[in-house]
Amino acid sequence: MIEPIWQTPLQQQVFRQLLDAYSYPGKVQTLADTLPAAAYHALLATLLDGTSSLCDRDGLLEATQWPLLQAQPAPLSTARFILCDGAQAADFTPLLGTLTDPEQSATLLLAVASIGSGAQALRLRGPGIQQETTLELAGLHPSWLAQRADWCCHFPLGVDCLLTDTQRRFVAIPRTTQLEVC
């Protein structure tokens, strides 16, 4: 049997959760319990194919997963998808897109310890959010927030972030979301 992560009906469900996550930034999603606990696996399997480029900065993927994902390996500066251990500092500049082609920018997947609860709390405002919402999490290196603010300060340029944890949870923070530490 094909592993659940590669089954197209499950990928469709994961995509709908991604759609919901992007539509309502800060809304925590929980993946089906047949999927791997580290949520980024299912997200990558749903989003990538042979035309996508991926950089696994911190070596979170095993070598055997690459051929299945089909993605092309790329450096941090040109990858359209970047997977990082969120506990490690942000020490690079990803693709931010251009004024005419802002979609040619990176999507960051940051693996953190916990989403939906934790010692860190963020206040979110922007499209998809009525007034404001708060997001609790744990295990995100504070440098990401400062860097992201820089990367996203010239709309439409920017990066879109997906935070994932090891309990099948994830949340989206697109470039339009204004973040504040509370």
Partner: peptide
């Protein structure tokens, strides 16, 4: 197949949709 389109075509549309939401109003090719 379910949904007519092959799975690569769907993946491309899905990635496009997420970019479209992230950049409100921008026409993603």
């Amino acid at each position: 197949p379910f949904g007519f389109l092959d799975s690569y075509a769907k993946k491309e549309v899905r990635r496009t949709v997420l970019k479209a939401i992230a950049i409100p109003g921008y026409q993603v090719p």
